[in-house]
Amino acid sequence: MPKQAVLLFAGQGAQKVGMGKDLAEAYPAVSDLLSQADAAIGYPLSQIMFEGPMEELTKTSRCQPALYAHGLALLEVLKSKVPDLEITATAGLSLGEFTAHAAAGTFDFATGLNLVFQRGSFMEEACDTTRGAMLAMLGGEESTIRELAAECDVDVANLNAPGQIVLSGSVEGIEAAAAKAKDKGIKRAIPLPVAGAYHSRLMKSAQDKLAVALEKATIVSPGVPVVCNFEARPVNRQEEIRATLTAQVTGSVRWVESMQHLISQGHTLFIELGPDATLAGLMGKIDKTVKVISIKDTATLDAAVAELNA
């Protein structure tokens, strides 16, 4: 009987220097895929992934295509080693939603790579022309954090897990939110080391440019359900895929609801494909009854293959 699993893909922040290097050395298919990415983008993406420096890999225009290529490289090897794996749905955190669409067949590898490279470049430009920041709120009720966001004129960027919500907006607004957090009963307010205010209104210029790029891209209905971040539900029609991928740039990442939707459909096995195990950690806070297998390199791949083929 085939193993059924939902695929989850990492978002920005999961990147690590060395990502994909052992996979490329062990599997010619991965080396070929990364060579394709280098040629398509016109700069040595794989070299930056393998050798860094971290400052370069962390640039939005670099880490987004790097995470996309890494996730799909892991998937390619996984499918070759577990041929009876049945992918029942996909989802990805922020940038990872594009990888999820590629995995589901919404667009081919090259089309998705071009889109995430443009998305990252547009977001980098928006960061350079605005003064934005992000703040992780640990503890506190969602309603209270939304009130605080409104008071400080910032946006709710990510609803990652119960007790973990991220705010995004102007530097002044985020500083005000951090100063008021304790009075609102929020345990900790942690500034995030990011270049700007992702998933906030300060990304509007990037959103507008990405909408044009998505309009030109060849997109088809995915072969399995893809749960979008913006509405926390599967999207299937081409026009709603374009609309939700566009809206996501300034909209909230509703990760908790996205995972709850998948669990409500009876999914119990999830496979995380990315350089770290962030999504498994979030799932542990959302619902401890489901299983997440995280695959990030050859060692974790081998362990996952042994478990899935058992």
Rank of each mutant, 00 (worst) to 15 (best):
V220R: 15
A304N: 02
C228Q: 09
M137L: 15
P44V: 13
E124Y: 05
D32S: 15
L23I: 10
V30R: 08
Q4A: 12
G251I: 09
R62H: 15
T90L: 04
K3I: 15
P162G: 00
D38Y: 12
L262N: 06
E25F: 09
Y43F: 15
A197E: 02
S252P: 00
T246M: 00
R62F: 14
G112K: 14
V226K: 12
P65N: 05
E215V: 03
A310L: 15
V6L: 02
V116M: 06
L138N: 02
A243Q: 03
S258E: 03
L301S: 03
R254N: 11
P234F: 03
A181G: 08
A232K: 09
Y198T: 02
E141T: 04
Q265F: 05
P225V: 05
N114F: 09
A5I: 00
H267L: 04
A161D: 00
V253W: 04
G139I: 14
V249L: 08
L210R: 10
Q4K: 14
K204Q: 12
G163W: 00
I145F: 12
P191H: 09
G52A: 08
I286P: 03
A37L: 11
A149L: 11
M19G: 11
K79W: 10
S200T: 04
H199R: 02
V194G: 00
V82G: 02
L93P: 07
E240I: 11
G185D: 00
E125R: 13
A39K: 09
P162V: 05
I186K: 00
